[in-house]
Nucleic acid binder design. Structure first.
Length: 456
DNA sequence: CGACGGGACGC
DNA sequence: CGACGGGACGC
């Protein structure tokens, strides 16, 4: 994964005008954000959320843009598992617009979320997804859509492709805006032969993913196995129970809030790899353990400093971010940004050494009370830093519990902030990946918050 | 590249 | 150059 790619929301999709869906020759999916919603300019639908992300985490992320009226993560009625999408209704239209601009295309853990206007609630929406088979292997998504477009507004479409070869499997999905549009499409197209083709296509309503997924019970195990290949559990080093298993999100408990007033309790631990036991003192996370873990992670190919030759630079992303903010900032005033777009690059090894030095005598810091999570101290921020930027930077590595930017009397950032993340490993990875990077011409410093004052 | 329709505003 | 919050705990 290139670092340049880390912070690249789809800024091209700023919905100031209807989005033209673009296609490449090999594209097999289509999921353009809604733009031309006539009403409901405050209500957003969020798709492709990471599996473990909770409603409160979604709320926290989107509240960084502005006041929200409601937030609903849609979950399986029986298991409570997130279905990976939800709704965020803002108080103000301009905040909803900024949320689309800022967060559509944002990479969260292993997902790229989609943020678009929710269609007005309508009983015709449900069950309008079609399963199409018999698609000629050479047919493009664009061609498939052109067959279905006469029957209504297509919300999403996709042609499945072979994981290995990347070639079309000849089956796909077309989701219409309304069920009766899907109905007519079935009646007209099922058993038909598209022009220029030789075989019939089959068109029917798609199954509910939850009801036909035999791998459902395996997904947790697969996730654990996948995690085991990319991250070294702390227990390997410490002989201690594993913390929550890694990025990516797994079971419904994965991001369960830590309710203990005291130390971390591994209530969300993955049963396959850990035993819930006593609490884990913060001083368990010694410097040597951190360094060993760093080395082991480097062996696993996880540590970006192990392979990267240059420190990533978020200047371009920052400018894009600021442009977004400026584009809609008229009512929000007080934006006196002057982005110093210097392109300073620092050697990765130097940054790593710096990290080691800063981590000395520093243990993972658990906030004292109600704000559960592992708290990172983020320094060398420019005076115009805002919450959303930090959300975008850090949420790539996992769930953020809280972002706190310290400001002076004129609301200028005092140069530092605290970012609390619910998962230790994710916070650690954020530190490894972001410390020493360039943000707005400054070398960002990210370390676990010290439990004692800096000059103690 | 992945799962786009909840809940409500009374029954 | 410089370098770690705030609310609320309740004696």
């Amino acid at each position: 994964m290139t670092m340049e790619a880390l912070l690249t929301p789809n800024n091209n999709n700023v919905p100031t005008s209807p989005v033209q869906t673009t296609y490449t020759s090999t594209q097999r999916y289509c999921s353009a954000p809604n733009v031309d919603i006539g009403e409901s300019k405050t209500n957003l639908i969020i798709n492709y959320l990471p599996q473990g992300m909770t409603q409160e985490e979604v709320r926290s992320l989107f509240t960084s843009i502005g006041e929200i009226e409601s937030c609903k993560l849609v979950r399986d009625k029986v298991t409570g598992q997130s279905l990976g999408y939800g709704f965020v209704n803002y108080v103000r239209e301009e905040d909803a617009l900024r949320a689309v601009s800022s967060f559509n295309g944002l990479r969260l853990q292993n997902k790229t979320i989609k943020v678009s206007y929710a269609r007005p609630s309508n009983d015709q929406i449900k069950g309008s997804n079609l399963y199409v088979s018999g698609i000629p292997k050479s047919m493009t998504l664009h061609e498939l859509e052109s067959i279905f477009r006469p029957f209504g507004q297509i919300i999403t479409s996709r042609i499945l492709s072979d994981n290995v070869t990347g070639l079309s499997k000849g089956v796909g999905f077309v989701r219409f805006d309304k069920k009766d549009e899907a109905d007519v499409a079935i009646k007209t197209l099922n058993g038909s032969i598209p022009s220029g083709c030789s075989e019939q296509i089959t068109v029917k309503f798609a199954n509910n993913p939850a009801s036909n997924n035999p791998k459902g019970l395996l997904s947790d195990l697969e996730a654990v196995q996948q995690a085991a290949t990319t991250l070294v559990p702390l227990s390997t080093i410490l002989g201690a129970p594993t913390l929550r298993a890694t990025a990516g999100g797994i079971g419904p408990m994965h991001h369960a809030p830590i309710t203990s007033k005291y130390r971390y309790s591994p209530m969300g631990a993955i049963t396959a790899v850990s035993q819930p036991t006593a609490t884990l003192p913060a001083d368990y996370l010694t410097t040597s353990a951190l360094l060993q873990m760093s080395q082991l992670n480097a062996l696993a190919g996880l540590n970006p400093f192990a392979t990267a030759t240059a420190v990533p630079d978020f200047t371009a992303s920052l400018i894009a971010h600021q442009q977004q903010q400026h584009a809609v900032a008229q009512q929000h005033a007080a934006q006196t940004a002057s982005p110093p777009a210097t392109n300073g690059q620092v050697a990765g090894l130097a940054a790593h050494a710096q990290l080691s030095a800063l981590s000395a005598s520093v243990a993972a810091t658990l906030p004292p009370s109600d704000t559960a999570g592992y708290c990172l101290f983020v320094y060398n921020l420019s005076s115009d830093t805002d919450d959303t930027l930090l959300w975008q930077l850090f949420s790539q590595f996992g769930a953020i519990v809280n972002v706190k930017i310290l400001r002076d009397l004129t609301q200028q950032c005092k140069g530092y902030a605290f970012v609390s993340m619910s998962n230790y490993t994710e916070a650690y990875n954020a530190m490894l990946s972001l410390n020493g990077t360039n943000l707005a011409g400054k070398t960002l410093q990210v370390v676990f918050k010290s439990s004692t004052p800096y000059r103690a």
